[in-house]
């Protein structure tokens, strides 16, 4: 395999030194459009470290069909997870947000494995729309995501999420006396 290099390399040492002098942070390079534009080819295989061996073996064993399925699932979650997060944020759960979001993601993963025909059709439409690269505000199918998720979750799921939220709230309230006593100066 041969690689053609054009212009400066992303890890050009002088360039990195210049960047360090300029901002003190190499990662600022990623906001340099010229640096980004030089990404003519993908990185390809990058795995390093003995512990990554099983992962590489796993990837190399996948069939083209399994790869397509992986990619489809990733693309789908790339749309659904931000929508789910935004939706749950709108519930105003405060400290309970994180545990509820975690539980909701698990619930979503579970339901995605057993979709009805109607739900599968909706997901296909969602992906097709996403592939058109329209601005988010113009994505009509995507705008239905929270209603679709609401239908996907069962009564039991909602009870479970409510319980997780309640636990989070309880913990917050129960921590208040300790937090207050920590602020009270000790008296002799």
């Amino acid at each position: 395999m041969t690689y053609e290099h054009t212009g400066r390399e992303p890890m050009d040492e002088q360039r990195l030194a210049d960047q360090l002098q300029k901002t003190g942070n190499l990662m600022d390079l990623t906001f340099d459009q010229a640096w980004l534009a030089e990404a003519a080819e993908d990185d390809g295989w990058i795995e390093a470290g003995v512990m990554m061996r099983p992962y590489v073996n796993y990837l190399k064993s996948l069939t083209p069909e399994q790869n397509r399925s992986l990619r489809f699932q990733a693309k789908l979650l790339g749309i659904l997870l931000p929508e789910l997060k935004q939706w749950i944020t709108s519930w105003g759960l405060g400290q309970s947000f994180e545990p509820v979001y975690t539980a909701a993601r698990q619930t979503l993963y579970r339901h995605l494995k057993q979709l009805t025909e109607e739900q599968e059709d909706w997901i296909t439409a969602l992906i097709d729309e996403n592939d058109q690269r329209l601005p988010v505000e113009e994505q009509a199918v995507r705008s239905q995501t929270s209603s679709m998720l609401a239908q996907l979750f069962t009564v039991e799921d909602w009870h479970e999420l409510a319980e997780v939220a309640a636990q989070g709230m309880s913990q917050t309230v129960l921590q208040i006396p300790q937090a207050v006593s920590d602020r009270v100066p000790a008296t002799a």
Partner: peptide
């Protein structure tokens, strides 16, 4: 670096083009 990895779909021989 004990380990470094990218998601399956970010390499061209698995996903064309990579994500």
């Amino acid at each position: 670096v004990e380990a470094i990895a990218t998601a399956p779909w970010n390499r061209s021989d698995i996903e064309q083009p990579p994500w």
